[in-house]
Design a protein around this nucleic acid. Sequence first.
DNA 1: ATTGTGGCCTGCCCGC
DNA 2: TGCGGGCAGGCCACAA
Length: 265
Amino acid sequence: MPELIEIEYYREALDALVGGMIDSVDIPDERFTRPKGTPIEPFAQLAGERLLKTSRLGKLLCLHIGPVGDPEAEVLLGLRFGMTGRLLINGSGPIDKLEYASGRDEPAWDRFTLTVDGNRVSIRDQRRLGSIELEPDLERLGPEASTVTAEQLAVALTGRTKALKAVLLDQQLIAGLGNLLVDECLWRAGLAPSRPVNDLSAHEIERLAVMIVDTVADLSARGGSHTGDSFDARNEHAQCPRDCGEMRHDTVGGRSTWWCPVHQV
DNA sequence: ATTGTGGCCTGCCCGC
DNA sequence: TGCGGGCAGGCCACAA
């Protein structure tokens, strides 16, 4: 479930530990490191350093780690949460329950644990779809969705033929939107998810950019990606909350998609 | 280069 | 009750 909004909640929670000393790093299983096959050792060597800062780009949460007062020696540790990953601090998460995740909650699913001044920070990820990476390449991510401008959006769309939804999900083009946020943004903007992007007018692009920024802000304040106006209509035979048309279920960009054919055109 | 597909992983839910 | 298939809100490697 975690999309930009949830990752930002994680970052804010983690921010309380900035300045602390990393006592230990525990990665039980090499399958969680990226790129695949990266040994655990370089991660373990972060013990003894300090957590200097946190940052986020899209769904990537970054920990800036190193000795105080020596920016040259700073190392970036990137955390990705996949679909089922949660950040736990001392056993509890900023988000209590993941939609669509298992009702169970096993400490055995802790794929990565950092101890900062005695506080346990863990990624609990049942399916191991998340990962950790040293010095992640930030250049591979597009502009941040929560502040995306019409100009940036236009750049992402130009020269492409993909379905609109597929582009919005592509982290290289726009960073941070996941399946739920995209469906809500398109529902609010009145745009069909399967529209080829080269078909959008300048006016529609502008409207969509504003809608993305507003929707992210709105749902952040409400409490998560699952609090959209269209969320309850992600069901068979559900009615569109705007115009009472029947919601339609399709696969677009390889993802399960709910939309309203009446007002999304 | 761009685009679509399948795989990674695991658990749950449904129908037989 | 047991079993197989399909599905899940992310991301990557790969083929066309």
